[in-house]
């Protein structure tokens, strides 16, 4: 069943805004409503075209009125976020309480027939006892005890409850791997843009990435088609953290595990990047999800592999390497020439 009236939350952020833009460009959709607490940037607003922006807080019961009155039949919830503008407690409230209110509003409205939530692979946690790849029916080995991952676990819990109470609504839960792209701003894109990248000494994580274009395509496909269920969304293949740092031409700074907390605070107070304990665990062990179900049941194969997505991010951001690959190649050739000459 094709959607007629779509509501997108988190529309002032990259994924929500660009999804709204894509949906607005689709003539089969009657109305696209975009909700967020802050207005989108001018550039984003221009892209979004005929999207109607509603400045509202999804924590406010007002959202129920909007959904009911506009006759929204499809809700895309993209506002659960890891990279907040404000303090942590506000983010948590926005993520968890916001989702509860939104679900309560959807439950009240009989027209709603589809609910799509952008979740994260962080719900699987990150630990040394993890299997190499997580499938959708595996749980975390260590339940995330704080931070974004815990928010996401709670959000998914409420979404499951909603799906039980409204079995007529098709609920799609999309667990995204870390999203990178030339324009999107996430924890990880800021992390790799640092000239000196802090890592934990003695650990090297396996990192799986998702290109922002693939992320948008998955959200769009879930909105336009009837695809209920839980899906891992991540690119094929992995990069080692050290390998990614080298590909971006950055310099790794291995920090002993004991010094990680102070260094993390330093980076945080300098407003460079937020190295929360949860983030550090991810940098230790990494996480890879199995995207077989995405390919077979959801019917989508990511166009960018992890490696291609990362390279596109590096080129798109014009990250200038400290020591460029052309220098290294030149050095290699120089040594070989010198050897030939000596002989």
């Amino acid at each position: 069943m094709a959607p007629r009236i779509v509501l997108v939350t988190g529309v002032s952020r990259f994924l929500g805004g660009h999804l709204a833009a894509r949906l607005a460009a689709n003539p089969e959709i009657e109305r696209v409503l975009g909700v967020d607490t802050v207005p989108p940037s001018r550039d984003l607003r221009r892209r979004m075209g005929r999207t109607e922006f509603v400045r509202a807080d999804i924590r406010n019961p007002l959202i129920a009125k909007i959904i009911l009155r506009a006759g929204v039949d499809t809700v895309v919830h993209t506002s659960v976020t890891a990279s907040p503008a404000g303090p942590r407690s506000a983010t948590k409230e926005m993520n968890v309480i916001g989702t509860m209110q939104l679900l309560a509003a959807c439950q009240k409205s009989p027209q709603v027939s589809k609910f799509i939530v952008k979740s994260t692979a962080a719900v699987y946690g990150a630990s040394s006892r993890d299997p190499a790849m997580f499938t959708e029916n595996m749980g975390p080995k260590d339940l995330p005890s704080s931070g974004y991952a815990k928010d996401a676990v709670e959000v998914e819990g409420y979404v499951r409850g909603f799906a039980r109470r409204r079995p007529d609504v098709a609920v799609s839960t999309l667990r995204f791997a870390n999203v990178v792209g030339p324009r999107i701003d996430t924890l990880l894109t800021r992390y790799f843009a640092l000239p000196v990248v802090p890592t934990v000494l003695g650990y090297d994580a396996r990192v799986q990435l998702l290109h922002s274009e693939d992320a948008l395509a998955v959200l769009e496909r879930a909105t336009l088609n009837h695809l209920p269920g839980v899906y891992n969304v991540g690119g094929d293949g992995v990069l080692m953290l050290s390998q990614a740092i080298r590909r971006a031409g950055r310099v790794p700074l291995p920090v002993p595990a004991m010094a990680v907390q102070p260094v993390g605070r330093l980076f945080r107070s300098a407003r460079l990047v937020d190295l929360s304990p949860e983030q550090v665990r991810f940098l230790n062990f990494g996480r890879v999800v199995d995207n077989t179900r995405l390919k077979t049941e959801f019917g989508f194969t990511p166009r960018w592999t992890t490696r291609q997505a990362f390279d596109d991010y590096v080129h798109g951001r014009a990250l200038r390497p400290l020591v460029g690959p052309e220098h290294i190649t030149a050095m290699e050739r120089g040594i070989l020439d010198a050897v030939t000459r000596i002989r």
């Binding site: 190499a132 992995v238 080298r246 290294i328």
Partner: peptide, 21 residues
């Protein structure tokens, strides 16, 4: 030459790892 090529690949991150690392 092989050694230098190896070092270059390592320094620029131009190598493959599988899902298990």
């Amino acid at each position: 030459a092989d050694l230098l090529a190896f070092l270059r690949r390592r320094a620029t991150g131009d190598y493959e790892v599988d899902e298990f690392g």
